[in-house]
């Protein structure tokens, strides 16, 4: 079984549109949306939810006021400044439970923390695992890992040979979680100085974790000079640029209407088809 992870560093470069288009083109695959923080792939795939499961985060601490002697030890020990006015600020609590273990009065208890939900769905483009992280939750890396685990399980069960993963933006905990052990990372870049800057950080990250990486330039003709800079940066990093997709307002129309871009008439369909062919070659499928 192979796994392709589409990432971008900077958000909004077309990662999700491209992943959705691959879903249209590929056969025998499972889809996974690992951008659990702002999941979007489901908007393009019109999924029918088959099952949903709660996702539990790190338990949090809570002060039982009746038992509290107001000794202040918890406040003193908490490195996250989460104890305020005899209460635990759930937004600041990291779940380390130092206060719970330390409280001499036993006045702190652990409370379960419903951090999100994950779903298994059917779409016309194949089975789909996606999730929704609760607002203001941490642990997105853990939910990403859960989505990937479920996608792998589903693929094994249904005899699918490929997992297409829409990854999160950035280079932090969720991306690290999305990259570990994947077979190929496709970085979607656009020819902007911001995206070029972020590309450098993403390539450091994939190298750090030893993940095979390729790049595609989206809207490459928006600024040809910066496109060339992107290509040079990739060459210097020893990472191949395997595709270029043109700038076409039709892509915005597709996003507006909630369709995979390859499903609307545009000049970029051909670019995406040839990109997909290159990705298959890189994956060895």
């Amino acid at each position: 079984m192979k796994e392709l992870t589409v990432i971008s560093g900077k958000g909004g470069t077309g990662k999700t549109s491209i992943a959705a288009s691959f879903a249209v083109l590929a056969g025998n695959h499972v889809l996974a949306d690992c951008d659990v923080d702002a999941a979007n792939l489901h908007l393009l795939l019109a999924p029918e939810i088959e099952s949903r499961q709660n996702f539990w985060g790190m338990p949090r601490a809570e002060i039982v006021t009746e038992k509290c002697t107001d000794c202040g030890l918890c406040r003193e020990l908490c490195r996250f400044g989460a104890i305020k006015g005899g209460q635990v600020d759930m937004l600041a609590c990291e779940g380390c439970l130092v206060c719970y273990h330390a409280c001499p009065a036993g006045a702190i208890r652990q409370v379960e923390n419903l951090a999100g939900v994950w779903y298994i769905s059917r779409t016309r483009y194949g089975p789909f695992v996606h999730a929704r992280l609760g607002i203001a939750q941490d642990n997105s890396g853990k939910l990403v890992a859960e989505v990937r685990r479920q996608a792998r399980k589903l693929a094994e069960k249904e005899g699918k040979s490929l997992i297409i993963t829409d990854g999160p933006p950035g280079i932090g905990c969720p991306v690290i979680s999305a990259l570990g052990g994947t077979d190929l990372a496709l970085v979607v870049v656009e020819p902007t100085l911001s995206s070029l800057h972020d590309l450098g950080r993403v390539l450091q990250l994939t190298e750090h974790f030893g993940v095979k990486t390729v790049v595609c330039i989206n809207k490459w003709d928006l600024d040809r000079k910066i496109s060339r800079q992107v290509e040079n940066a990739c060459r210097d990093a020893g990472v191949p640029v395997i595709g270029r997709i043109g700038y076409d307002p039709a892509v915005t129309v597709a996003a507006r209407e909630g369709k995979p871009v390859i499903r609307v008439p545009s000049t970029v369909a051909e670019d995406i088809v040839s990109l997909w062919a290159c990705v298959q070659k890189e994956l060895g499928i």
């Binding site: 958000g11 923080d37 702002a38 937004l91 992280l133 607002i135 203001a136 939750q137 950035g170 932090g172």
Partner: peptide
């Protein structure tokens, strides 16, 4: 702020 709605965003907006 960073994109999203999880801990790094909360830390920025709060």
């Amino acid at each position: 702020a960073p994109p999203g709605t999880s801990c790094p965003v909360i830390a920025s907006v709060r």
